[in-house]
Design a protein around this nucleic acid. Structure first.
Lengths: 166, 166
DNA sequence: CAATCCATTCAATATTTACTGAAAGCTAAT
DNA sequence: ATTAGCTTTCAGTAAATATTGAATGGATTG
């Protein structure tokens, strides 16, 4: 396979997969492009490479910055901004997990907390409370497990955790 | 909080969150409804409760069945089918993880495998290969970690894993 | 074997989500 | 103070996804 073909395929795959990872397609493509870029790139270059509008490029670059998946890279004497991707995959994974936890788990934990305040004593109420309680227990556990994971470093993950889980 | 209000809130929350969990809103709402239903429900009841069309109810029920999150429950003497949800949250989580792994991780592993076949020796090629290689390593590890997790039972998770990770 | 009762499918439609392009904002150079 | 270079915003539009409802299929009953 040719390099250019490989690059293209990588960007395409990352983009498609991104959708199911809670990252929109373009955002994932910009990320992919920067991941495999040998040098920092400007908005203009990103926009041209991916054939997207300036506005779109800008918005997704901002989003990636706010997720901490890419960084600004200022070149002396250049007015425009350049961007580079975080290349340590463990860091990348952590940042993605962090965002997803915030979006997918924390609101659940919060809602369950509120919902557990149902009153009453009938059979139906008891059943409802049980489901909510079980779920609350489970999501709290997952939440703290993830928190610990986020604090852990790569070696720990690759070493201890992987060995243990096997 | 009243029971009815709690139920409604639960269905709403699960539905909204579902979207970010790779499950569409209605599918998640049907699931929520069955999770807190004290009895098995028919398509018709589900449809009426959630104010959705018969076709929509049917499609999402099929999807939930195929995910293994709900089961058919045949009542003797009744012609129509009833449905009940899996209520063990550990099982529920495993089924969801299983599906998401299939959709979000396996295609990546497969694509990276193909992409690693890039040829050439330039600096750019080397860099590209490195990113792909790192990513491949990482996603393979995650994949087998999840596989092990799926085989593990609830007690193991709650016990060993939680203790270790704390 | 016709009628009924459910389940299923799918083209048309509605809803949600993402993208574009033009306009406005900033900042630095002249 | 004006222009030029780049970034940001956002209303309108386009694309992707989900939902409806009517038609079809199958099975059971009288």
């Amino acid at each position: 396979m040719e390099l250019s073909e490989g690059k293209q395929k990588f960007i395409e795959t990352w983009g498609t997969l991104g959708s199911s990872w809670g990252i929109n397609r373009t955002m994932a493509q910009v990320h992919a492009l920067l991941l495999i870029a040998p040098e920092a790139m400007s908005s203009k270059e990103i926009m041209d490479d991916l054939k997207i509008s300036l506005g779109n490029a800008n918005m997704n670059i901002r989003a990636l910055l706010s997720w901490g998946l890419i960084y600004k890279h200022l070149v002396p004497g250049e007015r425009k901004e350049f961007f580079v991707a975080e290349k340590d995959m463990w860091v990348v994974a952590k940042k993605i997990i962090e965002q997803r936890k915030k979006k997918e788990l924390e609101p659940l934990v919060k809602a369950l907390e509120e919902i557990s305040a149902v009153e009453g004593t009938g059979k139906e109420t008891e059943e409802f409370k049980k489901v909510v309680q079980d779920l609350k227990l489970f999501s709290n556990k997952s939440n703290s497990a993830l928190e610990t994971l986020l604090k852990a470093d790569s070696n720990w993950f690759v070493g201890t955790f992987m060995k243990m889980i096997k």
